[in-house]
Simulated assay, not measured.
Amino acid sequence: MSKRSGRRRFLLSAASFVFSIAVVAILLGGGGWWLLAHPETPVPPHWNPLRELKVNAPVTPVTRFQLNRALANEGQCRAVLAEAGVNFEAMEDLVVDENCGIAGRGRLSALVASKVEAVETSCTTTLRLTMWEHHVVQPAAQSLLGTQVSRLRHVGSYNCRQMRTAQGKSSGWSSHATADSIDIVGVQLADGRSLTLLSDWGTEGPEALFLREIWQGACDWFRVVLGPDFNRLHADHFHLQGPGWGYCR
């Protein structure tokens, strides 16, 4: 991603955040709280910060506020996924040590419109992945490839290990050690085509455009996104990570 594109994304994200805060402040002031909380409020749910996140609702500046609230509450996170039809089977939390484990653990096998090979991950990673699949991956497949994504291909989420860098192993712990990230290697399309980052990222044509669009779109739903242009360790996958300061490369 170019510096100009990265700066533009940052400014848009910052403007969206400021706007969300302003909307909440204005609406909650005076009679705003009553207006929003009333069962028959005229404010659409996707514009109402007091309403729960719905995956299939249009994205507005309030969506980020609703998403963050769901990410912070496991019960709400699971409820949002269930309402969207995501197959995320609840499991007991995994506690290994201070560095490894999975909070909000579950077995994911299907998103809104695409399947995935069953994988143990966290509710927060699943929710971010769900928003990406519904609002980025499927629309891009329809507009650029004229079909739907039937399966997202991955190489795992949880892995109790330290970070790997181009220079070798780091002393820091990977976000995979807490299932706060997942690695996507490609997609299976409903028309039978199979796309992989290793084979299709550097080509020309709609397949490569699709992969680049969903990579860039992932930056709207994950805080750290690394792809083939980052380094050789990511030549074959997108690293999609929830926690972080915001890095898209």
Rank of each mutant, 00 (worst) to 15 (best):
V55Q: 02
R107Q: 01
E204R: 10
Q167I: 10
N87R: 07
T124V: 15
A15G: 15
V43N: 06
L11C: 00
H38G: 06
L209S: 14
V224P: 00
F17N: 10
E133A: 12
L35F: 00
G30Y: 11
I214E: 04
S194L: 12
E52R: 00
H154P: 07
R64G: 06
K115R: 15
E117I: 08
S171P: 02
Y247V: 05
Q148G: 03
F210E: 05
H176M: 08
P228E: 13
S16P: 01
T60D: 03
L111K: 00
F17M: 08
V136I: 15
V55H: 05
L189I: 03
F222T: 10
G85M: 02
P139A: 07
F210G: 02
G242T: 11
N159Y: 00
L53C: 11
T41K: 09
L71F: 13
L11M: 14
D93H: 11
G186T: 09
W173E: 09
R69D: 06
H239N: 11
N159P: 00
F10W: 13
G146F: 06
R9E: 14
R212N: 08
W34C: 01
P61D: 00
L233Q: 12
I26M: 12
L189V: 09
A72G: 14
L12S: 07
Q66R: 00
H234F: 07
W34N: 11
L226G: 09
F19S: 12
Q76V: 00
F238R: 08
N99W: 09
I214W: 13
H237T: 15
R164I: 09
I182K: 04
F88G: 01
E89R: 14
P61A: 03
C100P: 01
D180L: 10
W245R: 14
A22R: 08
R4E: 14
E117H: 05
R164F: 02
V43W: 02
Q188G: 09
L189W: 07
G106V: 03
V59A: 03
A79R: 07
S174A: 14
W34V: 14
K169L: 13
V62F: 00
R212S: 05
G205P: 07
N231I: 13
V155A: 02
M91N: 04
V43Y: 06
L127S: 09
F19R: 04
V18Q: 07
K169H: 01
V43C: 08
L71A: 11
A113I: 03
G242L: 05
I182T: 09
A25L: 15
I26V: 14
D200H: 15
S13R: 14
A57R: 02
L152F: 00
F17K: 11
P206H: 02
T147K: 05
W132C: 06
